[in-house]
């Protein structure tokens, strides 16, 4: 399995924007999650977030919230997420990350969670609700580091230069920038202030930047070329999955992702 660093270098070498996609473990079922991950990897994405479902996902919009709820109704457990991580990290070569909410880690035990995540082949952690100020009590950064997990910091357009600097100091792998204010969810128009905000972030952040929230069309991807290193496609994939005809879901996801991936190259397409 390649590391986050290696994958980022590969993206750079290939002169393109990287693509990170997202699934909710157990949505629509554990078995289907497995197939979706495989489909995403086959389509050629660079990273996949495996979201551990949580009852109160405060940073997620309606699509992903609904998926969380569905997964919990399916009785998806934290250990299922570890199981899926282990299975898929053995099958595919791109880095897989856990995304979720801190209560999951806190209940599991911070060190135990990080250790078992590493053992299952997880490369990084995206947990937006554990700010740096709580580190002294939780030791989240410490244990992520100890077990070689990239701690992906999440910043937003509301972040002040001071906050950006603070997070940049501990950010590892890449930085996750929330492209617009608000929760996750596909929007047709990206935040107009995105460019200006990205410049603000880039001033302090020296590692690659992934931009998420709201990316659902090739024109969104194109608008990021040269400005960020990775585009995150979250709820748009879930929406696509839900809209595809029965039995054609995976095919729909693959087609959609291929389209987006093809638009991520720096080189102008030949006509």
């Amino acid at each position: 399995m390649v590391s986050i660093q290696q994958q980022l270098q590969k993206i750079k070498k290939e002169n393109r924007l990287g693509i990170m996609t997202h699934i909710v473990v157990g949505y629509p079922s554990l078995k289907e999650s497995e197939k979706i991950i495989q489909t995403m990897a086959d389509a050629g994405v660079d990273f996949i977030e495996l979201q551990i479902p949580f009852s109160d996902p405060m940073a997620d919009g309606p699509t992903i919230m609904q998926a969380n709820r569905h997964a919990l109704q399916n009785k998806t457990k934290v250990k299922d997420a570890f199981g899926l991580m282990k299975k898929m990290s053995g099958k595919i070569s791109i880095p897989l990350l856990f995304m979720g909410y801190f209560n999951t880690i806190f209940n599991y035990g911070v060190e135990r969670f990080c250790r078992e995540a590493m053992e299952c082949g997880c490369s990084g952690l995206i947990f937006p609700d554990i700010p740096l100020e709580e580190e002294a009590k939780e030791h989240f950064l410490k244990f992520a580091k100890k077990y070689n997990l990239s701690n992906i910091r999440v910043l937003s357009p509301a972040s002040t230069p001071e906050r950006i600097k603070k997070n940049a100091e501990v950010a590892d792998g890449f930085l996750y920038f929330v492209g617009r204010k608000g929760t996750t969810g596909a929007k047709t128009k990206l935040d107009e202030a995105l460019n200006c905000n990205l410049e603000k972030i880039k001033k302090y952040v020296k590692i690659p930047v992934a931009v998420g929230f709201g990316i659902s069309e090739t024109k969104h991807i194109k608008s990021l070329i040269g400005k960020a290193e990775v585009a995150v496609i979250g709820s748009a994939v879930l929406d696509r999955y839900a809209k595809a005809g029965i039995g054609k879901e995976l095919e729909g996801v693959k087609k959609f992702l291929k389209l987006l991936i093809n638009s991520a190259s720096y080189k102008k397409p030949t006509r």
């Binding site: 405060m58 609700d129 700010p131 009590k137 509301a158 972040s159 906050r163 929330v178």
Partner: peptide
């Protein structure tokens, strides 16, 4: 922090 309770566990976008 009320000793071990309380704190501010929110996404970065709410911190400011």
């Amino acid at each position: 922090h009320f000793k071990k309770y309380g704190g501010r566990y929110v996404p970065e976008m709410l911190i400011p």
